[in-house]
Design a protein around this nucleic acid. Structure first.
Length: 764
DNA sequence: CGACTGTGTGACCGG
DNA sequence: CACACAGTCG
């Protein structure tokens, strides 16, 4: 035990060895949060305060839970696979499989990822003849998920006007559709588990008694439903050890509620609030920047990171003239870092949104620097893989209409809109799934549909006794997918991805302990394996959802869950030493020797969608805080005067966050190319101005006429610095649209407004 | 009727 | 750059 604790600092030690009560650990970035969590679990077990089965550890990401298991295995000689360590979603999946009947689900229920969910919603609207312009599917999806994240069913949502009442009605119909098809979305996994435990007293009491210690990572990211879920699991006696950092709460957009931290403090009667403020990651200037920036937020629990490392390098800031040039600068700097001996994989380029990666990737590619992009499309989200998965889904649960529609005519087999219309009519008439409705379709359409049905059933029959990887292989062939892509010009990659699915299945089966020969389709004998049955006073038998997936569901069901819940690695050439490109969101929890934060412009970072509400800007600031605290030794920040986004040039001012950083920690670099930017140069914004649209109006005037031009940096007494985005009208009537960053877009009369020219590169 | 091709529109962050 | 849509050909 000595060695377990001996490397901890005082704060960490105090947290790890707290008594068995609920506690809140405010853990700053780089303060050894994961270490405290895992050591706490190990310490509890090693000192005999709890058995491994009495611990429930919840994380948000698969990565975090894997990390926890790995570290725990290194500390204790136990098999962590049987332990209850996982993401909220993964743990709920386990519980629902074990108690599927009580939860009102088929044993082979399937999980919709957000793509699936959106297409299910579109399908619902279509079948109801709802105008999807008036009720956009995406909005309905946000509405439904938002409600579920608060733990609200349709009948519990308040609607004050007709428009929202319609949403509520559609929410209810959506849930009915999911139930009919045997599918659940992400939020449903949690809500359904919550309802299961609140309604089923013996079950609830069983798990409450079992989990004496509940540990939660990234507590600041919990939404209302997750908070209620934890409260229910803990019951009266459970000790919840919550670790979080309110300054790193960056998921409000999907329902996370930082308020849960103070609520937790009161409702769980927290006597021990420990702050981990010693930072082991970043040099002084970097940490100062983070601290000074985040001090601009109003609602904080209060915490200031300190470090024993020296000031280190200043934070370098660069103003680029264009996104292209920004990328070139990044590459120059990265190159010199590498020349100085930096490891490529220790250099990260962060951006606010995925769309920004393209320019940087292009530049890196041209420069021949290996790089790796996180985010973007993930393995199980690729179209061809989703197709293959849909065939497998149909074999496990034929009533999944989304899966049915995805592949019924892919590869094409002569089933068109007309046939499907007939099928959908029949399904609606009898209230059954498309699959079940096939026999009710007559004529030629009925025959082709019948052939598809035979294909699925034949595949199922042929593979029922085979192990999962072999089943996958056969499905790839009999579905016609391989053949289809073989005929396609650029199908080689897709075939490779499909064949990768067989490997994925092989790997999965062995990692989850299914045994190489376990038949893919055969349901598990859960009752026999999963520990003793518990009979309650009411005579209800409960089978504990103990132990790994292998005892709860068939290899195929488990694999399909895995495909939805883990979506796989973000594509990338893994392995080699490469620069790391990712969004700030996906960088959370990581650290790098050198970090570039790019695109620091008003409208982009902070993002324009967040600027309407004040709380939104605070979240952007926390996001910036997360970005800064990823850096260990070197930190670079850059912004650009112009940027191509969604096919048009945008003129932005630099991010307000620059004004919130400590001057003495910064070093402003002047642009290396075109020092006074394009407006003094021959090639100017005129040449790049789009040929169509409002800009052509401005194009009719020469600079002499009005003295101002698009793209020019100006200063206004009240609004500060801005950029002329567009000019309309002529001569004395000319008016300019000017982007004043945090003051927003203004339309000013050029003959009236007192504007001054600003040289873009100058800055104190 | 169904398969294929071209044009227009919307696009952050993620389990 | 991805989808949904209309329009055309077999």
């Amino acid at each position: 035990m000595q060695n377990l604790l001996h490397n901890l600092n005082q704060e960490q030690l105090a947290a790890v060895t707290l008594p068995a009560q609920s506690a809140l650990i405010l853990a700053g970035a780089g303060s050894g949060k994961t270490r405290v969590l895992t050591t706490r679990i190990a310490w509890l077990i090693q000192t005999g305060q709890v058995s491994p089965a009495g611990v429930l550890a919840v994380t948000f990401t698969n990565k975090a839970s894997k990390e926890m298991m790995t570290r725990l295995s290194a500390m204790l000689p136990i098999n962590t696979r049987g332990m209850w360590i996982g993401t909220f979603h993964g743990l709920c999946n386990r519980l629902l499989r074990a108690h599927y009947r009580d939860a009102g689900l088929p044993q082979t229920f399937q999980i919709l990822d957000s793509q699936d969910q959106l297409s299910a919603i579109k399908r619902l609207l279509k079948s109801l003849n709802v105008d999807d312009e008036k009720y956009p599917p995406r909005n309905l999806m946000y509405f439904i998920n938002g409600a579920k994240d608060q733990g609200l069913r349709a009948n519990e949502v308040e609607a004050n006007d007709d428009y929202n009442r319609k949403f509520v009605e559609l929410y209810d119909l959506y849930d009915q559709q999911c139930q009919r098809e045997g599918v659940v979305d992400f939020a449903e996994l949690l809500l359904r588990t919550y309802e299961l435990l609140s309604r089923n007293q013996p079950l609830r009491e069983h798990y409450q008694a079992r989990f004496q210690h509940i540990l939660v990572d990234e507590f600041q990211d919990t939404n209302d439903l997750q908070y209620k879920w934890l409260k229910l699991m803990a019951g009266q006696r459970g000790a919840v050890f919550a670790v979080g950092d309110d300054d790193q709460s960056i998921y409000a957009f999907r329902g996370a509620n930082v308020g849960n931290m103070s609520a937790f403090e009161h409702e769980f009667r927290v006597e021990n609030l420990i702050k981990l403020e010693q930072n082991y990651r970043s040099h002084g200037h970097i940490l100062d920047s983070a601290n000074t920036l985040i001090a601009n937020n109003s609602k904080r629990l209060g915490k200031n990171l300190r470090t024993d490392a020296g000031h280190g390098e200043p934070v370098r800031i660069y103003e680029a003239t264009s996104d292209l040039q920004e990328a070139q600068w990044i590459i120059e700097e990265a190159k010199s870092l590498i020349n100085e001996g930096a490891t490529r994989s220790e250099i990260a380029v962060l951006y606010r949104s995925n769309a920004q990666s393209r320019v940087i990737e292009h530049a890196l590619f041209s420069a021949g620097i290996p790089y790796r992009v996180y985010g973007g499309q993930r393995y199980f989200e690729r179209a061809e893989v989703k197709h293959a998965i849909a065939y497998l889904q149909l074999m496990d649960n034929p009533h999944n209409d989304s899966a049915f529609l995805r592949v019924v005519n892919f590869p094409t087999r002569g089933i068109g809109a007309r046939a499907l219309e007939q099928l959908q009519d029949a399904a609606r008439q009898y209230g059954i799934s498309l699959y079940a409705a096939v026999p009710y379709v007559a004529g030629k359409a009925g025959a082709t549909l019948g052939a598809f049905l035979k294909l699925i059933e034949g595949g199922r029959f042929e593979t029922q006794h085979l192990p999962l990887p072999e089943m996958v292989q056969i499905v790839l062939e009999m579905s016609g997918l391989i053949q289809h892509y073989r005929n396609e010009k650029e199908g080689a990659d897709r075939i490779e991805n499909l064949e990768q699915l067989v490997n994925a299945a092989t790997l999965f089966v062995s990692e989850e302990g299914f045994g190489a020969d376990a038949p893919a389709l055969l349901g598990p004998k859960a009752q026999a394996v999963a520990g003793a049955a518990i009979t309650t006073a009411e005579g209800i038998e409960i089978f504990d959802a103990d132990a790994p997936l292998a005892t709860l569901m068939s290899p195929l069901s488990a694999f399909l869950s895995h495909a939805s819940l883990e979506a796989g690695d973000n594509q990338a050439q893994a392995g080699q030493d490469a620069l790391q490109l990712m969004t700030v969101h996906s960088a959370k929890g990581l650290e790098f020797d050198a970090v570039f934060i790019t695109g620091l412009e008003e409208g982009l970072f902070p993002h324009e969608n967040s600027q309407k509400e004040n709380a939104g800007v605070e979240e952007e600031r926390r996001l910036m805080y997360v970005a800064i605290t990823r850096a260990k030794q070197r930190l670079y920040m850059s912004f650009s005067q112009t940027r191509m986004l969604h096919g048009q040039t945008r003129y932005n001012t630099r991010s307000r966050f620059f004004d919130e950083l400590p001057e003495d920690a910064l070093k402003w670099l002047s642009p290396k190319v075109q020092p006074h930017s394009w407006f003094g140069n021959q090639k100017s914004a005129w040449d790049d101005a789009p040929e169509k649209g409002v800009n052509t109006i401005a194009k009719n005037f020469s600079r002499k006429d009005i003295g101002w031009r698009i793209g020019e940096n100006v200063s206004h007494q009240k609004f500060g610095e801005g950029v002329i985005v567009n000019i309309e009208g002529s001569g004395g009537n000319a008016r300019a649209h000017i982007n004043f960053g945090k003051h927003g877009m203004k339309l000013l009369d050029l003959s009236v407004a007192k504007l001054e020219k600003v040289a873009p590169a100058l800055r104190g």
